[in-house]
Simulated scan of single mutants.
Amino acid sequence: MTYPHWPITIGILGGGQLALMLARSASQLGMATLVLDPAPSCPAGASAKHGQGHWTDAEALADFAKGADVITVENEFVEAESLARLEQLGHTVLPSSGTMRLVQDKLVQKQTLRGAGVPVTEFLAVSSQHDLDEAMRMFGFPIILKKRTLGYDGTGNFTVSTPADIWSGVRRLGGFEAGLYAEKWCPFSKELAVIVTRGRQGQTVLYPVTETRQHEHVCSDVLVPCQITPQEAEAAAQMALRSVEAVSGVGSFGIELFQLPDGNLVLNEMSPRVHNSGHYTLEACDCSQFENHIRAVCGLPLGSTRLRSAAAMVNVLAKSTGTGYPCGMAEAMAIPGASVHFYGKLRASPGRKMGHVTALGASATSALETAKLAAAQISFKE
């Protein structure tokens, strides 16, 4: 694809750490980036021009879009209606509003993927006591209650272990009016993830299957390559690819899967954006998920996803509430083989992702040891 000018300017809705890493990858290609974020300060502001405003504000959205050749998102919370408004104004938006309508509501996402023949966890919409009773009858216990939208890092999930817990879960998630659904508990043996990048013409590249590990519903570690058979890895890759194709996605998408004890797979969740499970690609792959996202939405050739080395990524999670000022950065950077990424968030809170550490190694396990050692050096002032 030929552009009438260079640099291409990319507009990103949302200004968090994903936008920061997208902006850095765009800069590497000589491109400019704009971000629209409601906060007065945001991580992406360190590498992109930051416009303060909300995507639900039609005037702020239109002003932001005037300076962009193509517009993308860094999170799934940007309403499809806002993207459709931009499309009606003649802007190129990828992923499109149509894709986001199918993905950002997790109930609709599950319905769409099931309709495309992708195995998913059993689910049921719940909007009344009758629906809750039906979910308990169908699924038994435990049941996972989830918010249909605006849930992330475990904030939109509640595990119901007994009938006595169910109303606690409904209240915790904001009540029926917040939009809820129930899932049957999935007794998985491993949690896997695959990054798929799909271009404007439907061309695709897939990154290696990773194993993800969670702590209190937040991803703590990512290991690659995953210790599964080649046949299982191929099955995971094909399921991820079918999922992105089912929603006509363009860009890098994160696909999270459950591997069952018998080796079969079910899809847990799809994210229409670059994903935490793919941060390792910055150091470990020929072309990162971030650069490939930029290439995809701009209609440029997709880069190689070849894994250069076994790798691991550890999220740097805050343990308490306080400032975003990091202590121990020098000590972390002194660990041989550790690549430290810090996002520049101004406030820390328990479980918040403040940065990550990647390490390469002879095996994913040895790389994990290095990454954990470096991440353990970092804390935040209270």
Rank of each mutant, 00 (worst) to 15 (best):
V194S: 02
G351H: 11
C42W: 10
A48G: 06
S288R: 07
V35W: 14
L36T: 03
R101S: 01
G14V: 07
S220C: 13
T56S: 12
A374Q: 11
L346H: 11
G249I: 07
T56E: 09
V244P: 02
A39R: 10
A182T: 11
L22M: 14
R242W: 12
R137H: 13
K184Y: 08
A135W: 09
S309W: 06
V244S: 08
V297Q: 01
H50T: 07
D57K: 00
L300R: 14
R295M: 06
E269F: 03
A125Y: 08
F342P: 00
M138S: 15
Q231Y: 03
P272S: 04
A284Q: 04
S41R: 14
E245G: 09
E256P: 00
R24M: 13
S379M: 10
Q201P: 00
P272L: 04
G355E: 06
Q259L: 06
F253N: 03
A116M: 08
M270H: 05
K146L: 08
E191D: 06
T321H: 13
F253E: 06
Y325S: 07
A19H: 06
P4S: 07
A330G: 11
L307W: 06
A125E: 15
G351N: 14
A116D: 04
P225G: 08
A296S: 06
T72Y: 00
V314M: 10
W185Q: 10
K49M: 12
K49R: 15
P225H: 15
V120F: 02
R347N: 14
H50W: 04
E234Q: 14
D37I: 10
D133W: 14
L86P: 06
C298I: 01
T112D: 02
W55F: 09
E256T: 03
P43K: 08
T121H: 03
Q238K: 05
N292I: 02
Q52N: 04
A348W: 02
A374T: 11
G30K: 07
C226M: 13
L20A: 09
V70Y: 04
P326L: 05
R172F: 14
G351L: 09
E382K: 15
K381M: 15
S168W: 04
L132F: 12
A46D: 12
